[in-house]
């Protein structure tokens, strides 16, 4: 069954796959961060993903960033999120130009929004885990909103 992107169900499915794949995420190590995902477009969405130890423990949609203590938020237009996810689906992992690092590094395609630099640096401290979380979309059927 196809999952709609963006949606809470989409991110919860990635979380379910992460939590089921204990071997991969234990090897990557502890990950403790609350991450925002903002999908820009005609109908913008903001999601909060809570990572704790080896799991993604909570996914919820926010009306506003103030509703959660987000360490950082990755923000990009819906089309760019789609290109990234299509790349993951095509190769099993993103092509180098579509990794979260490549997309967000300079800030011209995907922005990293943060209030506290310690929160910002969590993106880089846990980059391998967060990338692996999104890589779980590799064989997901997606219905684009």
């Amino acid at each position: 069954m196809a999952l709609k992107f963006p949606s809470v169900d989409f991110f919860r499915e990635l979380a379910r796959r992460m939590n089921a794949d204990r071997a991969t995420f234990e090897k990557l190590g502890f990950c403790d961060a609350v991450m925002g995902v903002r999908v820009l477009g005609k109908a913008p969405h903001l999601y909060a993903l809570t990572f704790e130890v080896y799991d993604c423990t909570e996914v919820r949609e926010l009306g506003d960033a103030s509703e959660a203590e987000l360490d950082f938020t990755l923000q990009a237009p819906a089309e760019l999120w789609r290109e990234m996810l299509e790349s993951i689906r095509q190769h099993g992992q993103p092509a180098p130009q579509y990794t979260l690092n490549s997309l967000s590094h300079i800030g011209d395609r995907m922005q990293v929004v943060y209030e506290d630099p310690e929160g910002h640096d969590k993106l880089y401290r846990f980059m391998a885990t967060i990338q692996a979380y999104f890589d779980n979309a590799r064989d997901l059927e997606i219905e684009w909103a």
């Binding site: 180098p96 990794t99 980059m127 391998a128």
Partner: peptide, 19 residues
């Protein structure tokens, strides 16, 4: 380096080195 080199070795070194 992770953003400009497509080589798998550089991708891994960048990702884990950054951490």
């Amino acid at each position: 380096i992770g953003a400009v080199s497509a080589n798998d070795a550089d991708q891994t070194i960048s990702r884990f080195g950054v951490q």
